[in-house]
């Protein structure tokens, strides 16, 4: 656990708490969901917001395992001015995403899913950022503010 104050875009954003979890096997997806639930409860998110964040985390953690070949999830509790938020970063060193606009499309899947993972997760959060490089890996960052 670390505590830090960071300057972001000229604004002071405080990083209150940071945890990192391995996301390598299927059971880790369940652990990731539970960690996000616990932090969302600590942040006093509404039940709907908790559920949205946990569901988004589940989709992205599964992507990390299935498509990224395993990686990590970093959870950060942020305080920005008066509001608090939860930021999750999923990172893998997998094959990367060759066609980002295709991957972000509803209903498109390269695996056995429903193709709702990335596009669906994006709709469940306030901020969504994805960086992927073929052959290097993928990093998805989502934030939900209270």
């Amino acid at each position: 656990m670390t505590c830090a104050i960071r300057m972001m875009g000229g604004q002071v954003m405080a990083l209150v708490k940071s945890e990192e979890l391995p996301v390598r096997i299927e059971q880790d997806v369940v652990m990731a969901r539970q960690a996000v639930r616990r932090l969302s409860v600590e942040l006093k998110f509404s039940l709907v917001d908790q559920t949205k964040m946990v569901t988004a985390a589940s989709e992205l953690a599964r992507n990390t395992v299935v498509y990224g070949g395993g990686g990590t999830m970093r959870c950060e509790v942020l305080i920005d001015g008066g509001k608090s938020g939860l930021r999750l970063t999923f990172e893998d060193q997998g094959p990367g995403i060759p066609d980002m606009s295709l991957a972000m499309k509803d209903g498109w899947t390269s695996g056995g899913g429903m193709g709702m993972g990335l596009s669906g997760a994006k709709r469940l959060v306030n901020d969504f950022e994805i960086v992927s490089e073929v052959g290097k890996g993928t990093r998805v960052t989502i934030t939900r503010w209270k």
Binding site: V48, T51, K52, M114, R123, L124
Partner: peptide, 14 residues
Amino acid sequence: MQPAVAITLVELGL
């Protein structure tokens, strides 16, 4: 199905 789950599912696109 819990209401929060239903709301999330629809927003997810399912």
